[in-house]
Design a protein around this nucleic acid. Sequence first.
RNA 1: GGCUUUGUGGCGGAAUGGUAGACGCGCUUGAUUCAAAAUCAAGUAUCUUCGGGUGUGAGGGUUCAAGUCCCUCCGAAGCCACCA
Length: 922
Amino acid sequence: MAYNFNKIEKAWQKKWQDDKIFSVSIDTQKPKFYVLDMFPYPSGAGLHVGHPLGYIASDIYSRYKRLKGFNVLHPMGYDAFGLPAEQYAIQTGQHPAKTTDKNISRYREQMDQLGFSFDWDREVRTCDPKYYHWTQWMFLELFEHWFNKNNNKAESISNLILILEKEGNKNLKAACNPKTPQVGAEEWNSMEENQRLEFLQNYRLAYQDETFVNWCPKLGTVLANDEVKDGLSVRGGHPVEQKKMKQWLLRVSAYAQRLLDGLEKIEWSDSIKEIQRNWIGRSEGATVHFSIKDRKEKLEIFTTRPDTLFGVSFMVLAPEHEWIGLITTDAQKDEVENYILQTKKKTERDRISDVKNVSGAFTGAFCIHPFTGEEIPVWIGDYVLGGYGTGAIMAVPGHDQRDYDFAKNFNLPIREVVEGGNLAEEAFEAKDGVLVNSDFLNGLRVPEAIKKMNQELEGGKKGEPRINFRLRDAIFSRQRYWGEPIPIYYKDDAPYPLPKDKLPLELPPVDSYLPTEDGEAPLGRAKDWNFKTGEPYELTTMPGFAGSSAYYLRYMDPHNKNDLVSKEANQYWENVDLYVGGSEHAVGHLIYSRFFNKFLFDIGKVCKDEPFKKLINQGMIQGRSNFVYRKKGTNSFVSHGKVKDHEVTTLHVDVNIVQNDQLDLEAFKSWREEFKNAEFILEDDGTYLCGNAVEKMSKSLFNVVNPDLIVKDYGADTLRLYEMFLGPIEQSKPWNTSGIEGVSRFLHKVWRFCFEEDDSLSLNDEKATAAELKILHTAIKKVEEAIETFALNVGVSSLMICLNDLTKEKAKKKCLIKPFLILLSSFAPHISEEIWARLGETESVCKAEFPKWEKSFLVENTYTYPISINGKKKFLKEISLDLQKEDIEKVALEDEKLQSLLEGKTVRKVIVVPKKIVNIVI
RNA sequence: GGCUUUGUGGCGGAAUGGUAGACGCGCUUGAUUCAAAAUCAAGUAUCUUCGGGUGUGAGGGUUCAAGUCCCUCCGAAGCCACCA
């Protein structure tokens, strides 16, 4: 009987589930290994062939690690809060929990048929109150902590209160709101409770503040910076504008330096590390204080080039800068107000696309240069950003291109203070050159000049060295329904944390999922939703990243009712050894997770300060779309080769009715009602050829390949092998079903190798020969190396080569097949398990031991080495090189074949690399 | 503009500095078959006077030896970006 994959796969999946073969528990006798996939958001569309790529890779690795004797934690769950379910709810009135449940069952079904080795007893869902209990708990912990810069650690707020009671905040080094006022102990002690609560918001790691936020009118909510790209929302692509609102935020910026330093200790790809470094955006420089003429305030600016201070010819404030109203002279008032109005109208997107157009306005005010006493005009311009640094800059047009463009446009002076550029053409930005026209800096090179200036600034109290980060605090409020409620209630308009024994604060039912009439978040519709009468709950909910930031911890101890994770479980499982997921989470999830983990580390909840030791980013499997060309204004369709003769519109066509770019005409006619009477202009050979392109796999482009169909036609094992065989895991590549025949053939060959036509075993008990052992051990070594280095495509190839070689040797021996099946079992578990059982094994192949390869079988100590004779390279094979340098020279010269070649010639040079290569030059 | 990655047959892709193109797809030929599918076998970079020569985006360099390391240029992908 032939290889009946459908029957075999169903049977083993059931058996694995019934026997709970992949459920794990703490076992201190075994080393642990934690393999995690980024859990999916269960969308209504189900899985396409691209989704399982990462899951297959991590599953192969998990199975391999089990064979190697590790106690492997390999869980799966669902990131179940999110916009699509809520939007569906708005349209249909169906509760998002219902939609989500339905989608989850579908996901589970699709995953189950691929034979993954997940421990489903540990499943988590972020929308489950038993789970978000702990998301809310973490929020409260953040609320009750502040960041002490003296030891770079989070500390409890009660600690901070003790300090404030004793000496106020004058000696405090903390991550806080830059506008925090200075208070003394007396002042603090005399504050009312409400005032104190408000004051502490400046320090809390979860705090409330009125800030400019990314407001998306279309989605009706606020978005975090990583949810916005080029002025459009990442989800949906709707325009985003800046709006001032009161919001909950997380003080992620407090951890900027530690998030940066931590990157050195983890095995992530250079590109992801680089993206995170960019996002954190550390820049070293200095702040400089400029007095304002005729006023007592001092304008503080940030610069990375304090050495160019003598080149300042004007100042520029961001249009949002709070002092603009204060300092603008009456004469300039109209112009300035007009300009501010204009910039407000521009969305972020316009501002970006408008980079080339320089704009600004003069305030009429002047600053005093801290060293020369010169009067410097103060301008405003939208090339200065309100949110970065101090929202104000000193402009050095000679050595900064943006300042240069501004100066040229408004005819402001340009001064040279570093030699080497051509200021008639452009600014000289290189940090390399000698200072001129700069008083005490003259003659110094740039790096020394920076040092010297920093000393002068500090000494004269005119400024100080400063490190700035681009990383912003994360906005944590969403005006939505389908998310975790924020566990805060209000008394006299002041926010209070919900007592922890009242958690979880469950989502209340509402009659509609839209905002209320007076513009409040949907939770404003909940009836009688108060902590106590007159003490309403916070109405915004948490963003998507809240539930996904620490889910890896919950898997360690998913049913714990008293704690996020027990000490015991955390100390055993520590952190994730291998994390597999897409690179699109480089700045969102992967930064927030690291932030949460570092905080939990500070408060002693977890034992490792990085969550994910090693990260693999699987590439995307793209779709291959097909097009048909409709002749304009008609219902006739032109084949690809004839398109140039007609005026056509291009339409996507379902790839499932196209084979090798050839359209199935009948299927096309019945695909859509409107194509029922379609006519065709065909190629000369009578076929209709479609156009094609590689695009994202998406329902709307009709290029989705459903894994269910592949499993039905070829089996899960074939799909698993093929997805790995497609190419390097980290690379994006288009799906192409035609190559799948190859791996399918391989599995059929494995089956035929073991069984006769009548299904009887065709393997014997003979001992293996040396040649056969070499084949086997080569495969063991290669497969092991391939899995360890995640070159899974090479791993599949090695298995194929092994089978081909064994077939050629006619080595139908049990002692060879058994280790081969263990190697195969990580990739194609079902077929391996079936043959393993038919060989009489009673224990699952998953519990077997990964075979060890032995050097002696690989004839490692012989090597092919090249000899150059008269400039031509020759190779001699199989000469023992397991020798010392001198011996190799001797052997090389004593070798018979060599001697015949060398006869009558003079050896000029012998080059020897021990145990490797010998090259003899004649 | 900056950073990161990348460039190898018709295609997907292999090659610890050591015989480039493993493995698979596709294609060609043959066996089997009434025929087809499936299967099996052989071949498949390129030029060649059949000795061999040339080939990993282009050009240099290091080395006995370069797809691999270094420099310059060209192309592709991704990320960041009026961040002072």
